[in-house]
């Protein structure tokens, strides 16, 4: 359903990242693991909807200009 535009950055930058990097040397960061899993699942879903031969798809889309 409809979500409002975010008011705050949803991923932290700068010093937080550095902290996380430090921690990850000691143990795997659960947030990072979750993000990696989400990304894998996204990439898998994209692979199911897109044609395997990207070049053929791209080259096949040619249509004289409009306006």
């Amino acid at each position: 359903m409809a979500a409002q535009p975010q008011k705050q950055p949803h991923r932290s930058g700068g010093s937080d990242d550095a902290d996380q990097a430090d921690q990850s040397q000691l143990k795997a960061n659960p947030q990072a693991t979750q993000r990696a899993e989400e990304l894998d699942s996204l990439l898998d879903e994209i692979d199911t909807v897109l044609e395997t031969n990207a070049e053929e798809f791209v080259k096949g889309f040619v249509q004289k200009g409009g306006e």
Binding site: V62, K64, G65
Partner: peptide, 14 residues
């Protein structure tokens, strides 16, 4: 059906 503005040959529509 693509709601974009360019094809692969550089044609544009608005």
């Amino acid at each position: 059906v693509l709601k974009n503005n360019v094809d692969s040959a550089g044609n544009s529509y608005g």
